[in-house]
Design a protein around this nucleic acid. Sequence first.
RNA 1: UGGGGUAUAGCCAAGUGGUAAGGCAUCGGGUUUUGAUCCCGACAUUCUCAGGUUCGAAUCCUGGUACCCCUGCCA
Length: 532
Amino acid sequence: MKKKNFIYKIINKDLKNKKYKTIKTRFPPEPNGYLHIGHALSLYINFNISKDYNGKFYLRFDDTNPKTEKKIYIENIKKDLIWLGYIWHKKKYASDYFNIYYKYAIKLIKKKLAYIDDLSIKDIKKYRGSLKNPGINSPFRDRNIKENISMFKKMKNGEYKEGEKCLRAKIDMKSKNIILRDPVIYRIKYNSHYKTKKKWCIYPTYDFAHCIADSIEKITHSICTLEFINNRLLYEWILKNISINHIPKQYEFSKLNITYTITSKRKIKYLINKKKVNGWNDPRLMTLSGMKNRGFTPKSIIDFCKLIGVSKKEHIIDISILENCLRKDLNKISFRIMGVINPLKIKIKNLKKKIKIKIPNHPQNPSMGYRYIYLHSSIYIDEEDFKENSNEQFKRLTINQSVKLRYAGIIKIKKIIKKEDKILHIECIYIHKKKTKNIGIIHWISLKNSLKTKYILYNKLFISKDPNKEKNILSIINEKSIIIKYGYIEKYIKYINKKTSLQLERIGYFKLFKKSNLILSQILLLNNKNKF
RNA sequence: UGGGGUAUAGCCAAGUGGUAAGGCAUCGGGUUUUGAUCCCGACAUUCUCAGGUUCGAAUCCUGGUACCCCUGCCA
């Protein structure tokens, strides 16, 4: 028996009690934006349940609000699922069932369990009461069935204005659970629906449609996030009162929060509108398409979901866990190459001839092959690897401390050539020596072996650890989340496929952002201590 | 005394009456021509708090406390 988290325990019990033959789950995004890392967790949970129990997994677009939903989002959501490898058995739309919801609404009216309300939005709010005070009944609550049906049909036929009338479930205005104070289940909207166009002008609300869709699709376990927990009673009330056969059960888990990131479509949209990021797939965003752009691998995202677990506890997960998953994956597959981001020129005075060196493309994986590089008398190293004066902690080049050039020999400073305090270049002496202990190793490139390249470096998008908690997210944006540098990289880059992830040795993981004019973008650094 | 949910290390998280798994982070040490990787070690006398039951409690009981969600014709 599978035993992974509290949901698995519930399913195991249901199976033991022979409650279901086949386990069915669904992933129900609203097509009003792109998917983010939070959706990846929901996807992970729902997909794996169906996989582990040999069940079914449906993708259902929750498209009951024509005001916000668009076809473009449908396409991108599908792409994201495919990228992660979450293949659905069936693809559905809540809007597939518009006729059925309508039929059930009529049924509720006939059972005197729903009524047309003429109250304005403002008045509905007023009548609903507050957290501490009960609501009061709408004066239209006791309309007769005939009138209700006639008005509901008129609503459907477009005879009223938006907001003029709505259909409400007749439950209990005094309920302690505010969700049950006669929730609106149908409202008028004249926007064209991206899928059903102008066919309807009344739309069911989430609460009314979701449970019915789950039931129609014979979903067994309807898994959602914790904020829907109060809606569960309504979910159950509707299914019971429309007398539908199959009754799915709703279970809730806590929403994913990660330090330094936002997981809210609304806030992401806001940043896009404020031009703080370049669209939904900006590499600094934790949208799945942004992460793909950044260079995340599907495996790293799935490993992350596996690692963090599923619970009902409110949490904020340290971003380092995600980064660790990515590094682990990238370390295995990345092609090693040398590049300098802040070039500093070194002239080796005693090197008469170039030296040819055979180096591995991956130190732990010989199957990735070898290549040749050349050491010439003029090379670049990174500015970070030099300090005129420093202590032994600084295992790099100083006036009285030599360093080893990776894959080559040792260099020792002879003279620092300056012009008005600015270092033009450094003259060094080269020492052939293979085995040495306690000496720093730095990366380098020969001028003749290098290509000028643009580096795009990323920092965290937010300066606050918990941006979801911040009211004004614009105030916590890191203005230095993108840094552009011009440096060099091995000529060999020309032979590398755009999709290959790279490790700039001693710096971090990068990808070819653009191959034609050589732009590399940072995926993530080898560790968080390096700063450029 | 609105209703509901949740409390286990810096961050996640197992554990469901038999003496606190695991991961991340951190700190030591070893291997290493990447300050990377890899390997080894350390890291909760105690589970939100206070009582109680029990031979034995993170788990059961009683009473507190903190945080989160709910007053859209959003989902």
